[in-house]
């Protein structure tokens, strides 16, 4: 049975909701059940943004979760606020560019991806969220690059469809960054998160 609860968190403007919706479409194209739940109410008035995506091969119960198998933390505040909610054996993917102190937990896998830095190198800082998505699906494993990128046409408004190739490229860069750890280590030295563990290690 497949059941993955994913929490994507960051601050407003980082494209957190877009990431969640894109991931949901990725699941749809994989033929899986999915539920997306955005942060709502007083939470979203504080400048932080988060959303929950539940992916399963069976009927999904609660759309609202307390515990998660995956955390995609786009900033430090998300790590501080949510890393305790990840189940033992789960995965925390940190945006290493903005996360200076990664979580101190030893019972979860901590993965770092310098999303903003990679996006800057692409000369498109706006696609940092897509770089991170590439990293997230690398860890998730159940959503392929193909099914994820198919969703771009559904989540981006018509007038942004010219940017689909750029977004695809960003997702690929993110995926490859974790695939080729050598490159990542190169990034790691330059990134701010100097006290992070080795990328991809448990």
């Amino acid at each position: 049975m497949i059941l993955n609860e994913i929490l994507i968190a960051g601050f407003g403007g980082q494209g957190i909701m877009l990431m969640g919706k894109l991931l949901a479409y990725g699941a749809i194209y994989k033929g899986l059940e999915v539920t997306f739940y955005p942060s709502y109410g007083p939470e979203m008035r504080g400048g932080t943004a988060n959303c929950t995506v539940v992916i399963s091969d069976q009927r999904i119960g609660s759309p609202v979760r307390n515990e998660f198998a995956y955390l995609m933390a786009m900033n430090q505040a998300s790590v501080d606020k949510f890393s305790e909610r990840i189940k033992p054996g789960g995965v925390i993917v940190c945006n290493a560019t903005l996360v200076e102190s990664p979580p101190e937990r030893r019972d979860v896998k901590i993965v770092k991806i310098p999303a903003n830095q990679i996006a800057m190198e692409m000369e498109n800082p706006q696609v940092a969220n897509m770089v991170a998505m590439g990293g997230l699906i690398h860890e998730l494993k159940i959503i392929s690059y193909e099914s994820l990128t198919k969703g771009l046409v559904r989540v981006l408004p018509q007038y942004r469809h010219n940017l689909i190739p750029l977004n695809e490229q960003a997702i690929q860069k993110g995926f490859e960054a974790l695939e080729k750890k050598l490159n990542l280590e190169g990034y790691d030295e330059q990134s701010k998160g100097t006290n992070c563990d080795q990328p991809g290690t448990v």
């Binding site: 919706k21 997306f36 759309p63």
Partner: peptide, 10 residues
């Protein structure tokens, strides 16, 4: 209700 209204599903 608010949960059903806000959540997104296929």
């Amino acid at each position: 209700d608010a949960i059903l209204g806000q959540m997104m599903e296929p």
